[in-house]
Design a protein around this nucleic acid. Structure first.
Lengths: 206, 206
DNA sequence: CGACTTTAGGTACTAAAAGTACCTTATTTG
DNA sequence: CAAATAAGGTACTTTTAGTACCTAAAGTCG
C-alpha cells in the first residue's frame, strides 16, 4: 500500500486544480477503460486511480456514461481515407479497418457504450464511428475518386448509397455477437452488393 | 391496499404451482414490460404483481434479462410476408411494418433488451426480429416472387442482397435515436438502393 | 390415510454502485 | 491578507439484483 496513485510526483501537499486535475481524471478513466472496459469503469475506481474523489469527477462530468464517452474519445484517432487507385481495394481497406477496430477490445468497449447510451442520440453523436456525417464524408471521398476514374456511376454519390458497405458490416456486429467477421464476409459485401450497386445504375422507378 | 394481486380468484389458501404459477409470473412480466418497459421490469415488482416472490421467478429464469426476453416474446406475433404483386410495394410494406414496430413503445423495449444483452448472441438469437434466418426467409420469399415475375434478377436471391433494405433501416434505428424514420427515408432506401441493386446486376468482379 | 418429497411463500440479507451532502482545507485572486 | 473558489474526505442514501434459509402448503406413494 506504499503505492501512491498518480499525484504530482513527490507531491506532499500539492493539490491539483482545473485542467491538471481534469487531465488526471481523464487519464485514469482511459486506463480503466483500456484495462477493464466500460464495465470496469466505476466512479470510485477512477477517483482512486486519479488520486482524487468522486466529487471532483462529478463537478466535470454529469454521470458515468459521459465520462466513459469522453475517455473513449481519447482513444480513437481520426483516420485518412485510403487512396489505392482502385475502388474495390479502397472499399476493402475501409471495411477491414472497421472490422479490426470492432473486433478489438476497444470495439467491445464501444459496444458497451452504445448499450449504455441506449437511444440517447445526443450522446451517440459524440462517438466518432457513429457520426453519420464523418462516415459519409469518408465514403464519399473514395467514391468520388472512383467516379473520376470512371469506376463508378456519378449517381452513386449519395450518402445513402455510398455508405451501404459499412452499414452492412456494422449490422454484422449489431446482430451477431462480438466475434470478428471473417474476411469472406467483407468480400461478399463488396462483390455482391457494393460494387454492383455503385457501378451501373438504372433510373429509379417512380 | 385491499387490492389482492392476481392470485386464484377467491383463493383463500390455494397455492399455485408449476405451469399455473409460471404463466402468472409471465403475465405479470408482460404487463410490467408493456407499462414501463424493461427499465420498469424489476424482479420485486413482477413478483408482487404475480402475487408471489422472487424465489419463484429465479427458479424458472436465471436472471432478469432472460425473463425480459421471455416476456417480450409473448408480445410479438409472427407475420406473413406481403404479396401485393409488385416488388416495390412489397418492400415498402415490409419496411413500414418494421418502422412502425421500432417506433412503437414495444420497439423502445426491444432496444432496451438489445442494450441489456450487449453482445450475448445466444440471447439475441431469441429475439424474433434479430434472427437472421427468419428475416432472410421473409425477404427471399418476396424477392423470389419478384424474380418469377421478372421484376428482379435471379442473382439477387442471396440473403446478403435480399435483406439489404431492412438492414439499412435497422441501421437508422441503431445510429439515430428513437424517433420514427420518416417515410421519405424508406422510399429513398427502396428507390436509391434496393431496387437498383436487385434489378439488373452486372457480374461481380473477381 | 399418513409419511415423504417437492415446491411455494416469507423475510431478511448481501453486494455493488451511482449519485448526493456537507464539511474541512488548500489555492488562487484581488 | 481576505475573500472566493475548488479540492479532499467521509459518510450516506437509494436502488436492485441475486442469495440464503426457513416454514408451510400441495402432490405422491406406500
Amino acid at each position: 500500500m506504499a503505492d501512491e496513485p498518480t499525484k504530482q510526483p513527490g507531491a506532499g501537499q500539492t493539490r491539483r486544480r482545473g485542467a491538471a486535475l481534469e487531465e488526471a481524471i481523464l487519464r485514469a478513466a482511459v486506463d480503466e477503460l483500456t484495462e477493464s472496459g466500460y464495465a470496469g469503469l466505476t466512479m470510485d475506481r477512477v477517483a482512486k486511480r486519479a488520486g482524487t474523489n468522486k466529487n471532483a469527477i462529478y463537478r466535470r462530468w454529469p454521470n458515468r456514461l459521459a465520462l466513459g464517452i469522453a475517455a473513449y474519445r481519447q482513444l480513437t484517432t481520426s483516420v485518412q481515407p485510403p487512396d489505392t487507385g482502385d475502388l474495390r481495394d479502397d472499399v476493402l481497406e475501409l471495411l477491414r479497418r472497421a472490422n479490426r477496430h470492432w473486433s478489438s477490445p476497444l470495439g467491445a468497449t464501444l459496444r458497451e457504450l452504445l448499450s449504455a447510451a441506449g437511444g440517447a442520440s445526443e450522446l451517440l453523436a459524440q462517438l466518432p464511428e457513429q457520426s453519420t456525417d464523418t462516415v459519409a464524408a469518408t465514403w464519399l471521398t473514395i467514391l468520388g475518386r472512383a467516379v473520376a476514374r470512371g469506376e463508378a456511376s456519378p449517381e452513386a454519390l449519395h450518402p445513402r448509397v455510398a455508405t451501404v458497405a459499412i452499414v452492412l458490416l456494422r449490422n454484422e456486429f449489431v446482430v451477431r455477437g462480438v466475434p470478428t467477421a471473417p474476411d469472406s464476409v467483407l468480400v461478399e459485401i463488396v462483390d455482391e452488393v457494393y460494387l454492383p450497386l455503385v457501378r451501373q445504375r438504372g433510373a429509379a422507378a417512380s
